[in-house]
């Protein structure tokens, strides 16, 4: 009896917090998606109407699809620019040349900074008239450009900023994966005459598959939850003209009011949140299964 009380005492605070601030809100999130709202108050069950409206009825459907497509671009952009670069950096660090510890610390430094700091910093650097980026390009004779003001380059500029901010994270995950490969395996391949590129493609790449799986899944989740960097660099409307609008911004505007409308719509917001949650969970689970199988085969 005394033991049971002791165990209950140990578990109670954590369980209570989780119940009130995670479990119950998660259950409510699904419930709310099927209700209409007046301000903060649910006013009645309306079936799937919130879902059908955000998915199929203009103008909502157009905003949802445009934002979703931008998230897809962000994911692909980060997979190539951020994670590709990270893989090369990891390989360079694997050699444990002099100074490799310092390089690890340096490449991870931006990761510990807030997206708000990084976003504002690069917004200043990308300024069309006074920014560092145009000043640097002018030195090599490139004409100034309004990186965040031009719909063609705005999203790409924010993706590049994200890559600068986060590249150290996948790099050190890849590095940890590479360091688990037994030295003998690498040396045996070298003795068989494998060059660096061959080594990177045929030996290291299959053997870091577990790390690649993690990086893939985390990049996917991060890309579809993308919010802070575009919020700071492009505003909650995804300027210019919605060219950088992503689901996170669209959800925030819908639920808590945009700059222009100020209208709160918890019904549509809840439906969007549930759709994002289900999409992220399903795609993550399916790709995790698929990627894990690839790991075993390799």
């Amino acid at each position: 009896m005394k033991r049971a009380l002791w165990i209950a005492f140990l578990l109670a605070p954590a369980l209570l917090t989780m119940a009130v601030f995670v479990a119950w809100p998660m259950v409510s999130a699904f419930r709310y998606a099927f209700q209409s709202f007046n301000g903060l108050n649910a006013t009645g069950f309306i079936g799937l109407r919130n879902f059908t409206e955000v998915l199929f009825e203009p103008p909502f459907s157009g905003w949802t699809m445009a934002a979703f497509w931008h998230n897809c671009i962000v994911f692909m952009g980060l997979m190539v620019a951020q994670n590709g670069l990270a893989y090369l950096i990891a390989f360079a660090l694997l050699k444990t040349l002099p100074g490799h510890r310092v390089h690890q610390v340096i490449v991870f430094l931006p990761v510990v900074l807030s997206a708000i700091i990084v976003g504002f910093l690069w917004k200043l650097f990308l300024h069309p008239l006074f920014g560092l980026v145009n000043a640097a390009l002018a030195l090599v004779g490139v004409a100034p450009h309004s990186w965040l003001g031009d719909a063609h380059t705005a999203l790409g500029s924010i993706i590049a900023t994200n890559a600068w901010h986060w590249v150290g994270f996948p790099a050190l995950i890849f590095l940890a994966g590479m360091q688990r490969i037994p030295r003998e395996t690498l040396e045996a391949a070298r003795l068989d005459g494998a060059g660096d590129l061959m080594l990177l493609r045929r030996i290291i790449w299959p053997l870091v598959a577990p790390s690649a799986t993690i990086v893939f899944i985390l990049t996917f989740i991060g890309s579809f939850n993308w919010f802070e960097l575009p919020y700071v660099m492009a505003g909650s409307n995804g300027s210019p003209g919605g060219a950088t609008d992503v689901l996170g911004l669209y959800f925030y505007r819908t639920a808590f009011g945009g700059v222009s409308s100020g209208l709160q719509d918890f019904g549509h917001g809840s439906a969007l949140a549930v759709l994002m949650f289900v999409f992220i969970a399903v795609v993550s689970a399916v790709s995790l299964r698929y990627l894990r199988r690839r790991e075993i085969e390799a």
């Binding site: 999130a29 918890f266 994002m276 992220i280």
Partner: peptide, 29 residues
């Protein structure tokens, strides 16, 4: 104790939940 594994699973499931997406019910809560 009975329910140990189940409770561990309950905590673990919290790792998978992006609480940002439950921000509306959190706000109301």
């Amino acid at each position: 104790f009975r329910g140990n594994a189940l409770l561990f699973l309950f905590f673990l499931s919290g790792l998978m939940v992006p609480l940002k997406l439950a921000v509306i019910p959190l706000f109301i809560q």
